[in-house]
């Protein structure tokens, strides 16, 4: 789907506040309410945007966010990535070119749960050889507006 200026403006406005009404957006952008409504429908249908509730992790008691690089046997890459994607605490999974074979972000309710996911669940997956973890201490920037909208 090719995005034009109107689409981009809608994405920008909804990225700041998805509760903004079609009418308000139409006024800001200078198009009709119908155009806004149609464009939003199209953007959502084509999985360009997704209206979401985003929760602040500071609502969790002791949230632990880990950035984990995994080295896995080449033929197991896809099966390990799929198994990781099924884990609730695993928030991000991608294959990599360079650095490691896979990159994973884990968000656990506390450090105990994190180590369980890392050292019991992940290391027991067939094909996983080595992991390198970094634990988040301070978040300087975290733009939740960008992601991949999958399935």
């Amino acid at each position: 789907m090719k995005l034009d200026q109107t689409d981009k403006k809608i994405i920008q406005l909804l990225g700041a506040d998805a509760r903004m009404s079609n009418n308000q957006m139409a006024k800001v952008i200078g198009v009709t309410e119908g155009t806004v409504r149609n464009r939003i429908q199209k953007l959502i249908h084509n999985k360009v945007i997704k209206i979401s509730v985003i929760n602040n992790i500071n609502r969790m008691e002791n949230p632990s966010l880990a950035f984990v690089g995994l080295d896995v046997e080449t033929r197991a890459k896809d099966s390990v990535a799929k198994a990781l994607s099924k884990m609730k605490e695993v928030r991000f999974v991608s294959t990599l070119m360079g650095r490691h074979d896979l990159m994973v972000f884990i968000l656990a309710e506390d450090v105990t749960k994190l180590s369980k996911v890392l050292y019991e669940e992940i290391s027991s997956l067939p094909g996983v050889r080595f992991s390198e973890s970094s634990i988040g201490l301070k978040y300087y920037k975290y733009d939740y507006r960008w992601a991949r909208i999958l399935d």
């Binding site: 602040n56 799929k82 928030r91 991608s94 650095r99 920037k141 991949r148 999958l150």
Partner: peptide, 22 residues
Amino acid sequence: IAPAIASNVYKFETDWTPFANE
């Protein structure tokens, strides 16, 4: 720097994230 390119993203959830600088 240890750079990499994410070649195939399997999962990308953002329903719980840090609200940085807030």
